[in-house]
């Protein structure tokens, strides 16, 4: 084969920095693919990078990869609640693994056991799943201190997408929002809390208007995808394709450690800037989980009704979590 100079457009809706999955694209995936292509093949590869929505916003990335505006896109599946309804399964099983590596292991096991999850990207949206990523453990920051879940009754709490039902079950009032809007909205009282992992809570400065950060442990969520346009993928030389697939998987493999590091650094950072970090009591946590006990089954059935293998995926994931040795605070059953 002749040596080719390849250019790939890669993008994400979130900015490079506060969002770990984007930072790992920019700091790991891109340079690693470049390096390996240069060293191991006769080709060269360059990336045009458009993060922070410069090419496509968070809710447009899947479509932009599908129609070829982006060659490779990284996005949170949470912004595709209809198209990738079932792929949000970690959100439907809250209080799962606290350790992001453990969580990602269970998510990967589920993808491997139910090939439909991977095939859906290709069959419906003309893209290849290169690797998964996720968010670190979710907690709750509020403008005011609180003790029991009952204190959250009627409190307005911001969140994005499929995690909003966690709040509804607790009696809080969910407000759909995006990270960039969070600061002003917390400051002005549009809502009084944000359901957010510490890295972003720190990165977006939410501790300034909303300094009470309660460690609830909804779990790490493996819900981010790195995908590549199918036609573009097919057009690349075999050896380059191989490298992209391998680095995509390596991106996924390092995501657990990367998210864990961010969780630790985020909590450390929040402590340093003077946020008040509190622990939720074990009973309160179990009570919250109990209130959500029917949630996984409910979502499985909704997915089934949409022609997706909902029951199969939810059962597989719950079993996969158990297989990692992590114990859920309640026993979720999916019939």
């Amino acid at each position: 084969a002749l040596a080719e100079d390849i250019t790939l457009r890669i993008g994400a809706g979130h900015p490079n920095g506060p969002a770990v999955y984007v930072a790992d694209v920019a700091d790991f995936f891109v340079p690693e693919v470049k390096r390996r292509v240069a060293e191991e093949t006769e080709h060269t590869i360059e990336f045009v990078e458009g993060y922070g929505g410069a090419i496509a916003g968070v809710a447009e990335t899947l479509e932009s990869v599908q129609n070829g505006i982006l060659d490779i896109g990284a996005y949170c599946i949470c912004f595709e609640p209809a198209k990738l309804f079932l792929h949000n399964f970690p959100y439907y099983t809250p209080f799962g693994p606290q350790d992001a590596a453990q969580g990602m292991q269970a998510v990967r096991a589920t993808y491997d056991a139910v090939p439909w999850l991977t095939e859906q990207f290709t069959a419906e949206y003309d893209q290849v799943l290169l690797g998964l990523h996720g968010w670190d453990n979710y907690h709750l920051g509020t403008t005011d201190p609180w003790e029991t879940v009952a204190d959250l009754q009627g409190v307005k709490i911001g969140g994005a997408g499929p995690n909003l039902p966690w709040l509804e079950f607790a009696g809080a009032v969910p407000v759909q929002s995006t990270l960039p809007d969070g600061y002003l909205s917390l400051q002005t009282g549009v809502y009084n809390g944000w359901l957010m992992f510490p890295s972003a809570y720190l990165g977006f400065k939410f501790y300034e208007p909303s300094p009470y950060y309660t460690l609830i442990g909804f779990g790490a969520m493996g819900v981010n995808a790195l995908t590549m346009n199918q036609r573009k993928f097919d057009s690349l030389p075999e050896d380059v394709r191989q490298i992209i697939v391998e680095v995509g998987r390596a991106y996924e493999d390092q995501s657990g450690a990367s998210n864990n590091a961010r969780q630790a650094a985020g909590l450390e950072g929040l402590r340093e800037v003077g946020a008040e970090i509190r622990e939720l009591s074990a009973e309160a946590r179990a009570g919250w989980a109990q209130s959500l006990v029917s949630f996984p089954n409910q979502q499985a059935k909704e997915a089934d009704s949409r022609g997706m293998p909902g029951t199969e995926v939810m059962k597989t994931y719950i079993a996969a979590v158990a297989a990692t040795g992590y114990e859920m605070p309640v026993e979720y059953t999916v019939e």
Binding site: A59, P81, A82, G161, P162, L164, E168, P174, Q176
Partner: peptide, 8 residues
Amino acid sequence: EYEGEGSL
């Protein structure tokens, strides 16, 4: 296709 979740 929809956006948001739950009651929203």
